[in-house]
Nucleic acid binder design. Structure first.
Lengths: 346, 346
DNA sequence: TATTAACACGCAAACGTTTTCGTTGTATTT
DNA sequence: AAATACAACGAAAACGTTTGCGTGTTAATA
């Protein structure tokens, strides 16, 4: 087992000082060409690599970014993660990934753990519990220590920081508008419990569209589902009773699940009932019929979040704090067979 | 902006030495009860947290695990990742996640980067390119430095190390056996290019089952698909010409895609054609009809991999090297509507 | 009263870097 | 010959910990 070689080893071997070695490796003008060559040759031969820890300790910079997401087995989050990872690597940063499991406690623990020197900044989407309990002390605390962070998708108004968002409201508005243009009258919304910022936005867009185009907002046409245990009779009854002819769902699982359900009972999609989901993931693509979906462009979202964070990390030494920014990533509609698609371009 | 407090600050403030503070915080018997109390009270008041970097540098232990996977937007890998993260956190380790994007070069870069002090060990699944080119120098090199690693799912025989595997061959065998018991005669296999270790194993199990039960192995019933660009005429032709009555696919995307295709042409699933896929992911669950799938239990796989790695990390100082182990995680079949399921238990 | 033991604490090295500031020795200038 | 300049290098502090060992003080023992 070869042992890792350090500056000290090179110095001893070449009978020069550690500082000389360090400078030689950086092509410092203080060092003669001879020595530089000798040192670099030796370093290359023995495959010298500087110890990241020592450099980080010295420079107070880790080049690590902490990413905390509620769930990793989730198309949207992994896509964002991919964007973050991609941009970060490009800029020489590693990504430390933590899963909060939708739990406030885990979110807090993870943050505290990483905040003590492991990470230069955070990118995160708040856990369900965090949003529900409105508890953000861990965020304020991290900020007090001068560690920057960027919130994406699941955000809060109570904390001022950089944010990356979807135009949820507008996207839902456009979806409903499309239904109305297709002549639909009984447009249902299937959403989650209302403590999610994204669900709120989408619901608001839904209501706004109905009002704008003069359709009544019927609360009975809004169904709130829990995350788990979808297959109960509640959904069945919902579809049986209200004469629904179009459905907008806040995620693709709800959409595909409901689409399957109504089809089993002989409803023709899209002829008799149209569907639009959010999150253009793998399910939307392989559903039968293919699910028209509001694509959230998670990859870009991740890139933008990483860019904002790294910018802040690298400019935080400057005296004047830049104001916080909120970037909006526009959703676009991906039309498939669950809606009737005219030739008109949106 | 509060600045992070260190031992030095506490020492100065309390007019004791740094070592006293350090020892007091650890309840050392060298320190008087008075001092211990004083120090701990102060530390608590000012919310002291030791700097991870300094501790790592000193102890030569980072408590970080590097995870390198080919793709994060992939149900199986993320499930494994979740298992790794879950077990690691339990044992006080963080996870640094890197995506190789199926590229050998990125795999190498990521490993080299993390091997210089950022990580105590690796868990990885080899990239497609790595398996194709049979290039493993980066693995040998990391091992030479005494950094342990565990390979999962995408492994190689050329490197001796701890491994966690699926019983691919046996699983495929069982799938084919089920078809044969259901009276199927023309059983097709849809697989990837053959440089993937998993695909190899599954193909081998497929062949073995046919031979065992006295069915001819017809090479024309084996279709090899690339990862991308599925929707070409090749698949169509395949299903048109061979009188296929059952299909086993090495992943769920192939399965759902093909199932949709044949159904569109009026084939009844499962009556006229049965389907079994690998990877019991979200697609299998929400497909129409639900896809019978060989579940790979990625979460458990991740847990086992993390357990093996941490064990090796924490016992590596011992003189005697333990022999490398290979753990097999058994697949189980999840029966849904794409197969005809008797009452008989498998 | 002199010796010893226990106690409570501090010093300093170490982990592997980077960087400022000296300190040499040689060459150039006046 | 003295003063100056420069080139090439080393010493040491610093980042924030941990830890073996030395030291001073007090109390217990002979």
């Amino acid at each position: 087992m070869k042992t890792k070689i350090t500056l000290k080893h090179i110095a001893r071997e070449l009978e020069v000082s550690i500082s000389t070695v360090s400078k030689a490796l950086k092509n410092s003008s203080e060092i003669s060409a001879d020595t530089i060559e000798k040192v670099q040759a030796f370093a290359k031969l023995y495959n010298y690599r500087p110890n990241n820890l020592a450099i980080s300790l010295k420079s107070r910079r880790t080049n690590n970014i902490g990413v905390i997401i509620p769930d990793i087995v989730h198309y949207f989050f992994t896509t964002v993660f991919r964007g973050i990872e991609h941009y970060s690597k490009e800029r020489g940063y590693n990504v430390i990934a933590c899963v909060s499991d939708e739990s406030l406690e885990k979110e807090v623990i993870n943050m505290e753990l990483l905040a003590n020197g492991s990470v230069d900044g955070f990118i995160m989407a708040l856990s369900a519990e965090t949003q529900k309990k409105n508890h953000f002390d861990h965020l304020s605390q991290v900020r007090d220590y001068g560690i920057p962070f960027v919130l994406f998708d699941r955000v809060t108004d109570e904390i001022e920081c950089d944010k990356v968002l979807i135009n949820d409201q507008e996207a839902a508005f456009l979806a409903v508008k499309k239904f109305i243009e297709n002549g639909r009258k009984k447009i249902a919304l299937i959403t989650t419990e209302d403590y999610f910022s994204v669900s709120k936005g989408r619901e608001s867009g839904y209501r706004q569209a109905l009002e704008t185009f003069g359709l009544p907002v019927d609360e009975k046409l809004i169904l709130r589902l829990p995350f788990t245990d979808l297959d109960n009779g509640k959904v069945d009854e919902f579809f049986n009773t209200h004469g629904i002819d179009a459905v907008i769902c806040v995620n693709e699982i709800f959409a595909v699940h409901c689409m399957n359900l109504v089809q089993q009972k002989g409803v023709k999609v899209p002829e008799e009932m149209e569907f639009i989901g959010f999150t253009d993931g793998i399910l939307s693509k392989y559903a039968k019929p293919g699910l028209t979906s509001m694509a959230q462009h998670g990859f870009k979202m991740g890139q933008v979040a990483a860019k904002m964070l790294i910018h802040r990390i690298e400019n935080t030494q400057d005296e004047e704090e830049e104001p916080y920014r909120t970037e909006i990533i526009k959703s676009t509609i991906i039309e498939r067979e669950s809606t009737i698609n005219g030739i008109t371009v949106l």
